[in-house]
Amino acid sequence: MSVSSVALSSGARRLTLRGIALFYLLAILIGPVIVVCWRTFDQGAGHVWDTLTDSNTIHAFEMTLLVTAIAVPVNTVFGIIVGLAIVRRNFPLKGLLNAFIDLPLALSPVVVGLSLFLLYGRGGWFGDWFEAHGIQILFALPAMVLATIFVSLPFVAREVIPTLREIGDEQEQAARTLGASAWQTFRRITLPSIRWAVIYGVVLTTARCLGEYGAVAIVSGRLEGQTETATLRVEDRYTNFDLAGAYSIAVVLASMAILVLIAMTLLKPKEEAER
């Protein structure tokens, strides 16, 4: 009797915990996404189609993809180099660098945007020099890329660093004694060993770049059809009372992120089975 009542209560407790977890996920994560999808088609599929084929919307998606396509490779290379430097080398102020990498996570994107504004704007440290040379930074692609690179900087390095620590440097030393140069060692030994960390970092960086809003909002100038990204376009539609339009762009953005995550999950188990 007492045994079964204990089992029952532990079973009940498990159910309660699951219920709470499920409710939490539903309320915080899944619910809003479902509602957005639902409301998208409020005014019919025709309106969705019109919004998405609007030339300004298409341009906004192009801008988002272009900025992402520049920022992700740059941050991937940077993240791997910084990861290697922090784990494999000793240099002064290493601790400081390690702490600074996390700065974009701690700093509000709005602050990032403002600081870029101050640096590259008229009278800023670099602003006058670029203006004198006829190079447009603010309210153009360069500032949007800089802002996006800044906010998505830590992800690759943060994935790569623990993996590098875990694999140790014996394999690299073995490669060196076998005659491999520094580059050959990196290409053939280090990179394959950390590839999953790099891929995971790239996925997170991509998601962050696609979704970036605050910093880009400040430095881009939000010129419709010119410097407007997809997230800025959502806000533009929203403030112009085109709710269904805003929802349809949001759904496409969400689908892109979900696709990236699904691709990840599909790839990963295969790799683990191989080992």
Binding site: E170, A174, T177, I189, R275
Partner: peptide, 20 residues
């Protein structure tokens, strides 16, 4: 001289096998 130019073979206690 760096290790890759010395022409030595080195065997490690924990094998240092290339896992991939």
């Amino acid at each position: 001289t760096p290790p890759q130019a010395r022409g030595v073979g080195f065997v490690f206690q924990h094998y240092a096998a290339f896992k991939h």
